[in-house]
Simulated assay, not measured.
Amino acid sequence: MNQDRQDSASNSSIIVCPDGPILVRGDFDIVTPSGEPVPRQRQTVALCRCGASAIKPYCDGTHKLIKFRTSPVPGDADLNP
């Protein structure tokens, strides 16, 4: 790994936010399933996990409106067979 790549890797991270997006920080390529690059304007971006964003693959905050949850809610009827 060259020194520039190594320096940027040490500043790179992927953070999974509870009930929210995945934050991608650093030198990562974001591509479509067919391999086409997705335009990226910033070093840190938020990727949608709820599927409701109008600007997918990026998050637009819709997860808050639809009350997206990443973990089961205690007492949820679907959890009790």
Rank of each mutant, 00 (worst) to 15 (best):
M1Q: 14
A54I: 10
T70P: 04
V31D: 05
D76F: 06
Y58D: 02
G35D: 10
P18R: 00
N2E: 03
S71E: 12
V24Q: 00
F28M: 04
I22P: 02
G51T: 02
R25N: 14
C17F: 14
D29H: 08
P39G: 05
V38M: 01
S12R: 01
G20D: 10
L23D: 02
P18T: 00
A46M: 08
V31G: 09
S8R: 09
E36C: 13
G51R: 00
V16T: 14
C59L: 10
V73W: 13
L23Y: 10
K64M: 13
T70C: 11
P57Y: 03
A9V: 05
I15A: 11
R42Y: 15
D76L: 08
G61T: 13
D4C: 03
V38Q: 03
S34C: 04
G35Y: 08
F28V: 06
L65T: 10
V24C: 00
P37K: 14
C17A: 15
L23A: 09
D60S: 15
G26N: 10
D27I: 04
P39Y: 03
K64G: 13
D7R: 02
V73A: 12
F68P: 07
R5C: 07
S8T: 09
H63R: 08
R49F: 07
I55T: 14
A54G: 12
P72N: 11
Q43V: 00
D76M: 08
S13Y: 01
R40P: 01
C50W: 06
A46P: 02
D60E: 12
S12T: 00
V45M: 03
P37E: 14
D78H: 15
D7G: 05
R49W: 04
G20Q: 04
K56V: 08
L65I: 09
L79C: 01
I14C: 01
C50T: 07
V45N: 01
H63E: 08
Y58V: 08
I15V: 15
S10D: 15
T32R: 01
A46E: 11
Q43S: 03
L23M: 12
I55N: 10
K56N: 05
C50D: 06
G20I: 03
S8A: 14
G61P: 09
D76P: 05
D60Q: 13
P81D: 08
T44A: 14
T32K: 01
L65P: 03
D27L: 06
G61Q: 15
I15K: 13
S71I: 13
M1W: 11
T44R: 15
